[in-house]
């Protein structure tokens, strides 16, 4: 994009700028004013998180307007250059001090209640319908459908991987979903409570998909739980990244989730299971042919 085109897009986006952004801001290819706020996401929890974020944001804005207003008023009105005489007796006022200590306490409690409610919901990992084990490693993800015998690795896609080399000469803008695309996305059904068992193979990673409102550390030796339920009408691709520094290629281990209709997912799972079984058998045969019989 030329500078001029960029400025034009900035200007038009600014004109239409609103604090609520479309859920798929990234997919629209915008870069400036379309990238100001948190995504609302595609799950009930992600929307609740967004609402909480906006609530606390506006509370902060209101407090800021009042406090900064008083500061700015003082700076303008009580200037020595305008002949202001200091009132040196004004050093203490129990009433006012009591008010500005108690009011924040009340506001904080009012904020803590909805936050705690949402947190309790997030932590409720009961009644899940599908369990997938997610293992972070240097540098990619392994997905394991524990009940269905399907497992695969997910790495940064080849095009991004080529373009991200030092001085590759490839313009990142020419690569589709630069750094946010993988070879094998995680496939999940919509409208299903999917449980993730998150762990790490070597160092700590963190599995983060903003549209689901899920970020969970993948820690070697620990198994963390997380869950999400994608809206029934929100099938599609959702992208995220590792969110915990995990070494040289920390910036190059994206996450892509392919949310499909329940029927499509079932078909995919069946196919993939059969395929993987076949591959495993073929590998077994090869192994038994090349290895001495005693190996079995």
């Amino acid at each position: 994009m030329t500078i001029r085109a960029k400025l034009a897009s900035l200007a038009s986006a600014f004109a239409a700028a609103s604090i609520t952004l479309p859920a798929h801001a990234h997919e629209d290819g915008g870069s400036g004013w379309s990238q100001l706020n948190m995504t609302q996401g595609v799950t009930d929890i992600s929307r609740k998180i967004y609402d909480l974020h906006m609530l606390i944001f506006w509370v902060c804005v209101i407090i800021a307007v009042i406090v900064f207003g008083v500061m700015i008023y003082s700076i303008i009105s009580f200037r020595k250059s305008r002949g202001a005489i200091p009132d040196i007796t004004l050093v203490h006022n129990t009433k006012v001090e009591a008010v500005w200590t108690t009011v924040p306490v009340i506001i904080l409690i009012a904020m803590a209640v909805p936050a705690a409610k949402t947190l309790v919901e997030i932590e409720d990992t009961t009644k899940t319908e599908l369990t997938i084990k997610v293992t972070g490693f240097q540098w990619g993800w392994q997905y394991d459908y524990l009940d269905d015998g399907v497992a695969f690795y997910s790495h940064l896609d080849r095009k991004s991987n080529k373009a991200r080399e030092l001085l590759s000469g490839i313009d990142p803008n020419s690569v589709e979903h630069y750094l946010l695309n993988v070879d094998h996305p995680l496939v999940v059904p919509v409208d299903t409570k999917v449980r993730l068992l998150v762990t790490g193979a070597d160092v700590i990673h963190s599995w983060w998909v903003p549209d689901f409102g899920v970020k969970k550390d993948a820690i070697p030796g620990f198994v963390n739980e997380a869950w999400f339920r994608v809206d029934a009408d929100k099938a599609g691709l959702y992208r995220g990244q590792c969110a915990e520094l995990c070494g040289r290629d920390h910036g190059f281990m994206p996450i892509v989730v392919d949310a499909r209709s329940k029927a499509d997912f079932a078909a995919w799972l069946k196919n993939t299971a059969a395929q993987q079984k076949q591959t495993a058998q073929a590998a077994d045969t090869t192994a038994s042919l090349s290895a001495p019989a005693s190996a079995h």
Binding site: K6, G29, G30, Q35, N37, M38, T39, P172, Q241, G251
Partner: peptide, 21 residues
Amino acid sequence: FLGLAGMPRRIPDYAVQFTDW
């Protein structure tokens, strides 16, 4: 803005939607 739009910290390179900021 970058953080809210989804850019992780401690990365040397980023997806193109984070370019302007």
